[in-house]
Design a protein around this nucleic acid. Structure first.
Lengths: 156, 156
DNA sequence: GCGGTGAGTTTGAAAAACAAACCCTCACCT
DNA sequence: AGGTGAGGGTTTGTTTTTCAAACTCACCGC
């Protein structure tokens, strides 16, 4: 019944192949905050310098970051998110929201984000068509490619 | 100015500490789809069995998965998401949405999800307070804990 | 010319990932 | 009673990564 030999075609997996390695999403967090310099990244993330250099190369290659000079002579660079990189912010938001809710007490959230509407941002994933918040029970998966099995009645 | 020695307190980092290792989010994808048996996971994810066993232990310990028997004699188990695990689905949704948009042509999405409203689900992260879709420019970060620097005017 | 900063690279040891083989309990067949 | 096979892992030995610390190189200010 379920017997796909190789990993399935999957956009989650494909996205994680680009940003799923250790530190990559933290790099994105930092550059989204404007902290795009190498030494800032090392300090703020706590990653080994060589690993960070590898990650940065990969993220630049993937079109998620750009490396641009903020000073010639002495040459100095800064990493910034591309449009595609910024569009990964929802991933960061949902991760943060989960962590705030499950791993913290209500009053020691390390960071509060203010939305333009004036309120504190609590990110909610909604359905674009109807606007309702997405709940697991409301989903049904329809595999489009071969190699998928959906055992339960529900979906991801 | 920016000089935090150690990694910062951060809910994104904390969440990734639980689910950020290779394969963990793919495990979650599978269990959310109802494919929670060990051999299914091995096949569908393509992970080495030992690594998978390690991940499963960790996810169970973290309260994201439960391991429950679907048959005594012979003892057989199935992994399922806990409530906390299901609440990570928004992370999967945003990853999938990004991958569909940036890594695929419009017509070869490996999986389409149908929402209870009858339409195809396109997940959008919105502000709970005002309901508007979240855009980077509308955010402002307010660090609550020491150790944070927000260089740019914008926020993550 | 001396010390310091930024942005990495090099080096060598420790940890993780990997693939393949193995193990154990049971069920089913004959 | 013996053989086969499934499910759910563990073991083994090898290849990759990670890691921390030290090092490099270009430049600036003193």
């Amino acid at each position: 019944m379920a017997a796909t030999k190789d990993p399935r075609p999957c956009s989650i997996a494909d996205t994680l192949a680009l940003v799923g390695e250790k530190y990559s999403l933290l790099v994105l967090r930092e550059v989204c905050l404007g902290n795009g310099r190498f030494d800032q990244l090392v300090r703020n993330i706590g990653a080994p310098r060589d690993v960070l250099a590898t990650r940065l190369r990969r993220l630049v290659d993937a079109g998620i970051l750009t490396k641009l000079p903020y000073s010639e002579r002495p040459q100095r660079f800064e990493y910034r998110p591309t449009r595609a990189g910024l569009e990964l912010e929802p991933v960061l938001m949902t991760l943060m929201e989960w962590g705030d809710r499950h791993l913290r007490e209500d009053d020691d959230r390390p960071m509060v984000i203010e939305h333009a509407c004036g309120n504190e941002l609590v990110p909610v994933v909604t359905c674009r068509a109807c606007g309702d918040p997405v709940r697991h029970e409301d989903l049904r998966a329809h595999p489009q490619a071969p190699g998928w099995t959906v055992t339960g009645p529900t979906a991801a």
